[in-house]
Nucleic acid binder design. Structure first.
Length: 731
DNA sequence: GCCCTCTTGTTCGAT
DNA sequence: ACAAGAGGGC
């Protein structure tokens, strides 16, 4: 095969490896995607393996599609039968076929985070527990961790019997699972563990898949949890042709149960494993790689390893100190414009941050300059109320046991089925051990409900049963269009006539066009398939491809991606590393790995920025540069001081951008010049340590402090905090 | 049942 | 800073 020529020796060895377990420890940018695609292509073309006998698990659906496409191009052949997708999508595919063998129905609903919260609230209320003490998020967190580790509710209850709080958590977990089953619903964790359960309890099923999947691949193996590991173990029971690719230094999902020992102990669990190290980096300049190496080597819990590259030296990394988040965003936006002038495309650039909340100031700055951007994780299209409502209708149609969906939409739009009626029905359903929908179907025989409500309910049931019948015969896109009209949702919004209603209408139309696309791509796909596909999309998958645009995303989402120019922003103690990670060494090391991931996304240019003050939850506080910056040797940093000011006339108050690397504005520097707010008002003349004379033009209360805007004679408008500003009143 | 005000949590990361 | 939820008044 020609393409072997382009590979280095290690890569070639991995591609050509025959049978038996294969562990590829692939450093960042070492060409692992290439190895994976070539190896799969090689298996099909040279070893005559049928694509349907290969399973490859990737981290996002996008990665799966891209890889599939590449393999298709290499082979110039049909790869449709190749099983490729995320753990979750592969499991759904398996479960849709055989979940009835473990007591669920095949039309099961998939519950997202919101549904989980609704459900756990139900459980907490039912057990009469204090919601201040048993917080939804932390209860769900505990449940999720137990599930990741395949610990059943009973086991947990027994192990913690003497601890009331833990025992109650266990009972909540048990009740939560019971309800999921009643509603014929699975949460994300269930998708994995129910597949494992299916394999354990139905030998013919596991036997089928063990025979089918002669070769199995798992990418990003360092981020698998125990249940995913067990799934893989079960599937490889027969052939042991398991190839995993990972990098312990890029393990960043410990908080959701990823177990790094999966990769560290792989050789013990799978006998006769061949291990291949890929340490040559093809992605980044020497300087960038050096920075990454210097940061990661501070981790103690780590096998020594150092990536190297033949790429050129490249520019030094630029580290910029900026006043606050607005100035930081202005700096990045300016830089982007400069780089475009130098010939870079917007597609080449990405802004990486630790938390999603940081995106806002960058959005503002880019929008002001008409720079296109795409925000990964920001488009909450599927989280919009109207979309969730329509999805709830569709779910109920496909799965009438789904009480959560039923309760969401039974009175949306309003049909006069109120809270008290619903409570009665819910109670009735519980007593009869039936779904609420089946109670609704027998509503005429039920006492204690007004005729009026009964009529509304009968109309609702009739409408739904018509829709259920139609769902069998219509195409998905036509059907959804039919549903949104029949249920009166469109009508309701049209009547409303507000701008908000208008945008909801447009979103629904957009949703229908998503369905049209789905039908085009999956002519054989069912409604269930459509619903699962939308609930399993990752943020990266969901991001609209906007031509010629800067990408903005969290470091977590950036895993597996690369960009010629990376802006790593908000590099401050307490933000990156995040405050909550400072207490535990292991958490701090995960932050450091995350930083390593961030740095290694960059190919040519890396900008690292941090601010001197940052506002979180509306409170401004002083920040210190991240320890990870301190870990970079001086000689790798471009230390040329930039002194520039630009005035943006379009925006009166945030217009003055100051890029100076001054050391001022620290609390201790300013203590001696602190001004008492009482003496100051609009019109007061002041003198600033650095900016000279100016006049106060605006004053605003800010907690215990005051925010003042001063028009300086030389530098224009500045926003300052009274308690901190190094200013004096001129009498 | 609905509207208003006040309080509270949120944002660490995500399938 | 802001949204969602609680609680009170109509």
């Amino acid at each position: 095969m020609d393409y072997l020529k382009g590979l280095n020796e290690r890569q070639r060895e991995a591609v050509l490896h025959g049978e038996g377990p294969l562990l590829i420890l692939a450093g960042a940018g070492s060409g692992k995607t290439r190895v994976l695609t070539y190896r799969i292509a090689h298996l099909i073309e040279e070893r005559g393996i049928f694509p349907g006998n290969i399973l490859a698990i990737t981290f996002t659906n996008k990665a799966a599609n891209e890889m599939k496409e590449r393999i298709g191009r290499l082979l110039d052949g049909d790869v449709d039968n190749l099983w490729m997708g995320t753990f979750h999508s592969v499991c759904v595919r398996i479960l849709r076929r055989d979940i009835d063998k473990i007591g669920y129905e095949r039309g099961f609903s998939i519950y997202d985070r919101d549904d989980q919260v609704t459900l756990i609230k139900e459980c907490i209320n039912e057990m009469n527990l204090d919601r201040d003490y048993y917080r939804e998020s932390s209860v769900l967190g505990t449940i999720s961790h137990l599930k990741d580790k395949l610990i059943a509710p009973d086991t947990y209850i027994n192990e913690n019997y003497s601890n009331l709080y833990a025992r109650n958590l266990g009972k909540l977990y048990a009740l939560y699972q019971k309800k999921l089953k009643q509603y014929n619903a699975l949460d994300f964790d269930d998708l994995i563990i129910k597949t494992v359960e299916l394999f354990r309890s139905a030998p013919e099923v596991i036997d089928y898949y063990q025979r089918k999947f002669q070769y199995i691949f798992v990418d990003e193996f360092q981020d698998t949890n125990k249940s995913q590991y067990e799934l893989i173990r079960a599937l490889t029971g027969k052939y042991k042709n398991i190839c995993v690719v990972g990098d312990p230094d890029q393990s960043i999902y410990g908080w959701r149960g990823a177990d790094i020992t999966n990769i560290l102990n792989f050789e013990k669990d799978f006998k006769d494993t061949t291990t291949i190290l890929l340490e040559q980096n093809y992605r980044s300049t020497k300087n960038i790689l050096n920075v990454a190496n210097h940061i990661i080597k501070n981790n103690m819990e780590r096998k020594d390893k150092e990536l190297w590259t033949d790429n050129e030296e490249g520019n030094q990394v630029i580290v910029e100190k900026l006043l606050d988040d607005k100035v930081e965003a202005e700096f990045v936006a300016n830089k982007i414009e400069e780089l475009v002038d130098e010939g870079y495309s917007l597609n080449d650039m990405a802004i990486l941050y630790r938390t999603n909340a940081q995106s806002r100031s960058f959005e503002d700055a880019l929008r002001r300059r008409n720079i296109n951007y795409k925000l990964v994780g920001g488009v909450k299209f599927y989280d919009r109320k109207e979309i969730k409502d329509i999805v709830a209708y569709l779910r109920l149609i496909q799965n009438p046991s789904d009480d959560i969906s039923l309760k969401r939409i039974i009175n949306v739009p309003r049909r006069g089925i109120g809270k008290s009626t619903l409570e009665k029905i819910e109670k009735m359903a519980q007593e009869k051990d039936e779904s609420m929908y089946s109670v609704l179907m027998e509503i005429s025989h039920i006492k204690g409900i007004s005729t009026r409500a009964k009529n509304s309910i009968s109309a609702f049931v009739e409408m739904m049963s018509n829709l259920m019948a139609m769902s069998e015969i219509m195409s998905i896109d036509d059907f959804i269009n039919h549903v949104v009209h029949k249920i009166g949702y469109m009508e309701e919004l049209e009547k409303e006539g507000t701008i908000e209603a208008q945008s909801r209408l447009e979103n629904i139309k957009e949703f229908i066009s998503v369905a049209v696309d789905f039908v085009v791509d999956n002519p054989e796909g069912s409604l269930e398939d459509f619903l699962s596909s939308i609930s399993l999309l990752s943020d990266v998958d969901k991001t609209e491809d906007i031509e010629n645009s800067v990408t903005m995303l969290t470091v977590h989402s950036a895993k597996g991606l690369e960009f010629p120019v990376v802006f790593l922003v908000g590099m401050e103690e307490g933000l990156f590393p995040i405050a909550r990670a400072l207490e535990k060494d292991s958490d701090l090391e995960e932050e450091r790995r995350l930083c390593y991931v961030a740095v290694t996304r960059a190919e040519e240019l890396l900008y690292i920025t941090y601010t001197q003050m940052r506002t979180i939850y509306g409170r401004t506080s002083y920040s210190q540069p991240s320890r990870f910056i301190e870990e970079i040797p001086e000689e790798l940093i471009d230390s040329s001081t930039v002194h520039r000011r630009k005035v943006d006339l379009r925006s009166p108050f945030i217009n003055v951008v100051d890029y100076t690397r001054d050391e001022g504005l620290k609390p201790k520097d300013t203590a001696s010049t602190k001004v008492d707010g009482g003496d100051m008002d609009v019109g007061t003349k002041v003198s600033h340590k650095k900016w000279g004379q100016g006049t106060v033009v605006q004053m605003k209360d800010k907690g215990n402090d005051k925010e003042i805007v001063i028009a300086f004679d030389t530098v224009g408008l500045k926003r300052l905090l009274l308690s901190l500003a190094p200013i004096e009143i001129i009498k």
